[in-house]
Simulated scan of single mutants.
Amino acid sequence: MKTSFPTRSRGFSLVELMVSVVIGLLALLFAVRMVGGAEQARRSALGGSDEMQNGMVALFSLSNDAGSAGYGLNDPIIAGCNTQFNDTKGYQLAPATRGATAVTPLAPVVIESHGASPDRVSFYSGTSVGGTPTLRLTSDAAAGATQLDVDRIAYGFNQGDVLVVAPEQPGGDCRLVQRSDSDSTATRVMLAAGGGMRFNGGNPTASFKGYAARVFDLGPVGSLAFRSWSVADGYLQLRATGPDDTSAQPSTVAENIVSIKAQYGFDTRAGGAFLPQNGLQVNRWSATMIDADGSGIVGDAGDWQHIAAVRLAIVARSKAFEHPAAGAACTTTTAQPVVFAGDAPTGVAGVPITLNVAVAGDPLDWRCYRYRAFETVVTLRNAGWRPNP
């Protein structure tokens, strides 16, 4: 008689099942961490790309304006003069000080320095093809005069052109207006308001003496390059006198720009040693005006004529923020950026500035972002191309 035994059941034991579950959970955890790390690396890479792109766009925009700044404004008669100006579309000249007096100078660049916060930087230039033709007044022009009598036919002065009326003796007030008539045979220039003459309004107080003042033509209003750059809420913004600028609000040029900074490069040679027709040089950097000509007055017309270059810095941040560890503070960036630390050119000491890159209203700490600073030095070549006094 055969004895049969029951066949043993095949499958996993409880212990084997538990071990399999633990191994699976460990593998899942590893996969999640790996995917999370890859995603973080991707975000960082994309953030770096955003920094580079936005920063280069911003730096190119400002340096391009700086490269053409001062064209038509380099005559010693008008360079640095306190200019009365009114624009019906809302553009305003940048404020500055002359000693203790508030002024609005015509110059290649005007920096409104705000310490660790973003600056506002304005670049001015004309576009007259004729090389900024000039006329001389032959009779007195009272404040707000709408007719200027000049010494010859106003050839090259076209209707709508932007004009600067300035005393021949530097240091007085100037007036920026537009020619409203088109008479090419008259020895006069009309400055009537209305009719699209956007610069002929306001209440100017500057008056001019006959045979002691000149009229300069900066070219058509549509191509006048008066442009002011600033940063607000993480955006690079532009205000300009362009024909499409129809409101008092600035236009946005680039995002995730948290600061722009600028410094004047002064040629501090004074007296007979200062010969701009033989070339300018940078001896000193400063974010504010100095007594560069040694006259004893900070910010007079002579100081503006001693500006040889401008140093620019742009700080861009990554678009994506990086999460800190649970319960910890962000450590993606641990120190505020510092710009202008190096010599430029060699032997001219830099004046470093530590920047505040926190964006007002941003709920995240500034340390959660990555930052990249871009710097350049632009020679104001038009400042050296000037007629002799």
Rank of each mutant, 00 (worst) to 15 (best):
D151H: 06
G70F: 04
I77R: 14
P105V: 05
P76A: 09
A116N: 05
S182Q: 13
G80W: 02
S180W: 08
P170I: 05
L137G: 00
D140R: 03
G156L: 01
T185A: 14
A100C: 00
S113K: 11
Q84L: 00
I153A: 15
E112A: 15
L163K: 04
G172L: 05
V164T: 01
R98K: 10
S61K: 02
Q169Y: 10
A58W: 02
I77Q: 12
R136C: 02
G156C: 04
P133I: 01
D161F: 11
V57L: 12
T83Q: 03
V109W: 13
N86T: 15
F157D: 01
R152H: 01
F85L: 07
E51A: 13
V177Q: 01
M56H: 00
Q169S: 15
R179Y: 01
T101W: 00
T146Y: 00
A79M: 12
V121C: 12
A142C: 09
V165I: 14
R98F: 02
D183E: 09
N158V: 03
F123T: 00
D75G: 10
S182A: 15
S68M: 12
Y91L: 12
A66M: 03
I111Q: 05
Y71L: 13
T101G: 03
G55R: 09
I77D: 09
Q84W: 09
A94Y: 04
V150I: 15
V165G: 06
G126I: 01
N158R: 08
N64H: 15
P167M: 07
M52T: 13
R98P: 01
P76W: 09
T104M: 14
A96R: 02
V103H: 12
A145G: 11
Q84D: 07
N86P: 00
V162P: 09
V150R: 05
G90Y: 08
G67D: 08
P167S: 08
L135C: 06
V57H: 11
P105N: 10
G80C: 11
Q169N: 15
R179A: 10
D161P: 02
R136E: 03
Q84F: 00
F60Q: 14
L62C: 10
R152Q: 14
K89P: 00
F123N: 03
G172K: 03
P170K: 06
D181T: 06
P76G: 11
T104N: 11
G160Y: 05
S122Y: 06
R136S: 12
T104E: 11
T83W: 10
A154T: 03
D65S: 15
P167C: 01
A79F: 00
L62W: 02
G172R: 02
D87Q: 07
A142P: 07
I77L: 03
A66V: 07
N64I: 05
G160R: 06
F85E: 04
G130M: 01
T88S: 14
G115Q: 07
T97L: 08
G126Y: 04
R98G: 02
H114Q: 14
S113W: 10
G55E: 14
F60Y: 12
A107C: 09
Y155G: 14
R152S: 13
S113P: 00
L176G: 08
A79G: 11
G90M: 01
A102M: 05
G115W: 12
L176D: 09
T83A: 14
S180N: 08
G172Y: 06
S180L: 01
T138C: 01
F157R: 01
E112Q: 13
A66T: 11
E112V: 10
Q178R: 04
D183V: 13
A66E: 02
I78Y: 10
L93M: 08
S113D: 14
